[in-house]
């Protein structure tokens, strides 16, 4: 059985964009942690920019679809956490640059 690494999961998540911004979930700073156990179960801790985010289900579906397509992934457990709360300080440098490029003041 193919062993999945945390790096592979992070790389896959870099391909999942926030539906409202041209920036990946990773560069938005929404992914708090990724872990993979020996049986291929991936656990992802993430948050959202707002509790009322209307794109929650869509984002979770995109994550499951993208990460689920990595060979060796047996299951995906997503834990939505609200602490520490997301703020724009969690943006990566790349995320900040991309958002500035579309005219957002961050």
């Amino acid at each position: 059985m193919t062993q999945v690494s945390e790096t592979e999961v992070w790389q896959a998540l870099e391909g999942v964009n926030d539906p409202e911004m041209p920036v990946s979930l990773v560069d938005m700073g929404l992914i708090y942690d990724v872990s993979v156990d020996g049986s291929g179960v991936v656990e992802i801790k993430l948050t959202f920019t707002s509790i009322g985010c209307p794109g929650m289900d869509m984002i979770l579906e995109d994550i499951r679809g993208t990460v689920g397509s990595i060979p060796g992934v047996a299951d995906i457990e997503v834990d939505v956490v609200w602490s520490p709360p997301w703020t724009k300080e969690k943006l990566t440098d790349r995320g900040r640059m991309l958002l500035k490029a579309v005219g957002l003041s961050v």
Binding site: T47, S50, I51, V81, W82, S83, P84, P85, W86, T87
Partner: peptide, 10 residues
């Protein structure tokens, strides 16, 4: 408690 931080921030 685990949702309060974000709620109170909003």
């Amino acid at each position: 408690a685990r949702v309060a931080d974000k709620m109170l921030l909003e």
